[in-house]
């Protein structure tokens, strides 16, 4: 439980910190692009956790790895 929870929680915390950076308008244009990319990844990851759209596929991949 701890593992999954912290992963989702960590993602949310990172997302919030990115938003904080954005709100402070402290970012260079290059950073902005990188942060936007990272935030998108995090959101995708979190949605995945909630809606499990890709979880089936991932599970199959995990099973393949085990073999």
């Amino acid at each position: 439980m701890a593992k999954k929870e912290s992963t989702y929680k960590d993602s949310i915390l990172e997302l919030e910190s990115i938003i904080k950076d954005l709100e402070e308008n402290q970012l260079e244009i290059d950073d902005l692009a990188a942060k936007a990319k990272r935030a998108t990844e995090l959101i995708k990851f979190c949605k995945e956790k909630l809606y499990g759209t890709e979880s089936e596929v991932n599970k199959i991949l995990e099973d393949l790895d085990k073999e």
């Binding site: 308008n25 244009i29 902005l32």
Partner: peptide, 26 residues
């Protein structure tokens, strides 16, 4: 779960808004 999802959605919206704000500012 709705609360969790809404929070995520809020963050997503805020982020998008902030990015466009930042771009505008830049």
């Amino acid at each position: 779960m709705d609360e969790t999802a809404n929070h995520l959605l809020d963050l997503e919206e805020t982020m998008k808004q902030q990015i466009s704000d930042n771009l505008e500012m830049a």
